[in-house]
């Protein structure tokens, strides 16, 4: 059975070191950006901005460091399912807790 599954297309993909250095520089830059943005007072938008930048960084890590870019599409679908689930859980809880106000 195992022999049937093992095909050459499923071998690991080796990335050049240079790509990773670039990705790392990008992550460092985004960290600088999030620190800089936190100094500006934008009210509620501060939290939104912080989460947005963090998500960008997470996406970069997943896409390059965690090889999602090079892997079979099944991995991307699975990650999508997980993110949607997390979104549903957060979203549906919020239709309670934001509307309820102090208890």
């Amino acid at each position: 059975m195992k022999d049937v599954m093992e095909t050459t297309a499923e071998k690991p993909h080796a990335s050049p070191y240079g790509t990773y250095i670039l990705v790392w520089l990008c992550l460092m830059g985004l960290t600088g950006l999030t620190v800089a943005v936190s100094g500006v007072h934008l009210g509620n938008w501060n939290a939104a901005g912080a989460v947005a930048i963090a998500s960008t960084k997470a996406a970069v890590v997943i896409w390059y460091f965690m090889h999602l870019r090079y892997d079979k599409s099944i991995f991307r679908w699975m990650v999508l399912v997980m993110i949607i689930t997390l979104g549903i859980i957060l979203g549906l809880t919020f239709i309670d807790s934001t509307v309820r106000g102090p208890f």
Partner: peptide, 22 residues
């Protein structure tokens, strides 16, 4: 199954919006 958990909490003091949606 992920969208309906709130129906266990109709009498727990959830917001009315949440109750209707769930």
């Amino acid at each position: 199954g992920y969208l309906v958990w709130g129906h266990h909490m109709f009498t727990s003091g959830m917001s009315n919006t949440a109750r209707a949606v769930f």
